[in-house]
């Protein structure tokens, strides 16, 4: 008896949710790669002010969102941290191929909470730390870039035993921020407004540029807010915010 009542209640809630979602067409769910958390919030606020539409943001690793979108997740727009996953979604017919564009080019940073600790690649060479935080290279492009950097420096095998992996770049950041790892590879955008500690902006020659692509998903194709959000992301106001957080912009677009 109790169980059937529970199921009835759950179904009611679900129906209400669906109905409410339909009634409010000016809302879009956006899947945002974790490194873009801070600028995405600022952009969404500006977007709302300008257009009245609302972008509801979810943050996680690109790999996690890729899997969820493949399983019919209700996202209208995907801001990935790479090009590959939006492209694959378009190939599978889950995204609009023509909508894909590079909204930001990410920068990788080696960061420590202790000031004077990070002194360029010498810090990696001396390897005086116990733990080096990165994000999961299989699921997150910044993790992949960190691995490439260490491979370019021929230090990957030596440093691998010291890795601790966050599920996404926010967790990789937080491992360093709580002091549990002495150093870690994070996104430059995460250090905006954070003047403490010490950092080394990894030279672009050591890793492939992290070109971050946005794409309109099939679920958002008929959603005015979704298309408007992507337009806004290309506009000068959003581009200024993106640059402020230390990203490079794609001059081709």
């Amino acid at each position: 008896m109790r169980i059937s009542r529970f199921i009835f209640g759950a179904v009611c809630l679900l129906v209400c949710g669906v109905v409410a979602g339909r009634a409010d067409a000016d809302q879009v769910n956006v899947a945002v790669a974790a490194n873009f958390t801070a600028p995405a919030k600022e952009i969404a606020a500006a977007f709302r002010q300008k257009t009245g539409h609302e972008a509801v943001l979810s943050f996680g690793s690109s790999g996690q969102f890729y899997t969820q979108i493949n399983q019919d997740a209700p996202f209208g727009v995907f801001l990935s941290a790479d090009q590959e996953r939006p492209k694959k979604l378009a190939d599978k017919g889950l995204a609009e191929p023509a909508s894909r564009f590079t909204y930001a080019i990410g920068k990788l940073v080696l960061w420590s909470k202790q000031s004077g600790y990070v002194k360029g690649e010498a810090t990696l060479q001396s390897a005086a730390f116990a733990k080096l935080s990165i994000c999961n290279p299989a699921a997150a492009p910044y993790g992949e870039a960190a691995v490439e950097t260490m491979k370019s420096l021929k230090l990957y095998d030596a440093l691998k035993p010291k890795f601790v992996e966050g599920a996404d770049i926010m967790q990789a950041f937080q491992f360093v921020d709580t002091g549990n790892a002495e150093v870690g590879f994070v996104a430059l955008s995460q250090l905006t407004g954070n003047v403490g500690g010490s950092r080394w902006i990894v030279p672009q020659t050591l890793y492939k540029p992290i070109r971050q692509d946005a794409v309109l998903l099939k679920k958002g194709a008929d959603n005015k807010a979704a298309t408007a959000f992507l337009e806004f992301l290309k506009g000068p106001q959003a581009r200024a915010i993106i640059e402020k957080y230390g990203y490079a912009l794609d001059n081709g677009s």
Partner: peptide, 8 residues
């Protein structure tokens, strides 16, 4: 398992 799911 979480890792495998995240990486498809």
């Amino acid at each position: 398992i979480y890792d495998y799911v995240e990486t498809s």
